[in-house]
């Protein structure tokens, strides 16, 4: 079984995330970049299957700037067997459509039985890339899985929707995405970090993948930001220390604001 895990590098959510006001793109210089936590969980799903099924091959794949190398190396240190980095200046500011097209082309060139992604990234947060990739590849998708059960020829799980839960399955090859209901990822150990340096690491440009943006994206709609405005930050109001009467004072505050 060959499992490819899609990992996206995102600004660390513990820092303040900023947008460039003219392009509306994430200001990546403004914050530390890390592999999205949800994608580490996706990698954990693949690695725990590999632990139980020797002979499983796990590949981490990312599209992004040069800085993504660090995140892919971490994936290798955690236990992935090889990495693929889609790197091309034409992809700067890519929307979900371009991203999915580039990832799908890279997947086709790599070959796979199962693709595992996060349900939504913590920066763009669109939650659409995995299903877009599946449509490009003409495969079934199951997104937002809260549990995953992989067998030799199919994948099954429970999918959370706003209204309830669906039990679903699909034959392999397929594309799935998982939620943070799945376990946290393991940490890389020393041996993993050392061996990561020797593992195969492929860098592919759009040309290598057979994509010429001027041809591939002719007539395809592209999402563009017209304007990004920062809201004024919230400021602190009244703060009191409870000296035995704070519950009553809070009730008075709520009454004054017509909130009760």
């Amino acid at each position: 079984m060959k499992i490819i895990v899609l990992v996206k590098q995102v600004p660390d959510t513990y820092g303040e995330r900023t947008l460039d006001p003219t392009t509306g793109w994430i200001d990546r210089a403004g914050s530390d970049a890390v592999i999205d936590e949800i994608d580490e969980r996706a990698l954990e799903v693949a690695l725990s299957y590999k632990d139980a099924h020797k002979g499983t091959e796990v590949v981490v794949l990312s599209m992004g700037s040069k800085a993504v190398t660090v995140g892919l190396r971490k994936g290798l240190a955690m236990g992935a067997d090889s990495a693929v980095h889609v790197l091309d200046a034409a992809l700067e500011g890519a929307d979900a459509g371009w991203t999915a097209a580039a990832i799908a082309a890279a997947l086709t060139s790599t070959g796979f039985d199962l693709v595992i992604a996060g349900n939504e990234s913590t920066d763009g947060g669109g939650g659409v890339v995995p299903a877009m990739v599946a449509e490009h590849l003409g495969l079934a998708h199951m997104t937002f899985l809260e549990s995953v059960d992989i067998s030799a020829d199919q994948v099954a799980g429970e999918r959370a929707t706003g209204q309830g839960t669906l039990r679903v399955h699909a034959s392999l090859p397929a594309v799935i995405s998982i939620t943070e209901n799945l376990p946290e990822a393991r940490f890389p150990n020393f041996r993993g970090i050392m061996s990561a340096k020797k593992k195969p690491f492929r860098v592919a440009s759009l040309g290598d993948l057979g994509i010429d943006p001027a041809v591939t994206f002719a007539g395809v709609g592209r999402s563009v930001v017209l304007q990004a405005t920062k809201r004024p930050a919230r400021t602190a109001g009244t703060k009191i220390v409870d000296e035995g009467n704070a519950g009553v004072e809070l009730a008075d505050f709520l009454v004054a604001g017509h909130l009760i």
């Binding site: 659409v128 877009m132 449509e135 997104t143 929707t161």
Partner: peptide, 23 residues
């Protein structure tokens, strides 16, 4: 912008060559 709605938007977007505006 539900789980189902985003899945549909994603697949349809690729099928008809549309751009997606999310949320």
């Amino acid at each position: 912008n539900s789980v189902e709605g985003r899945d549909v938007a994603a697949r349809l977007g690729v099928r008809i060559g549309a751009g997606l505006v999310i949320d």
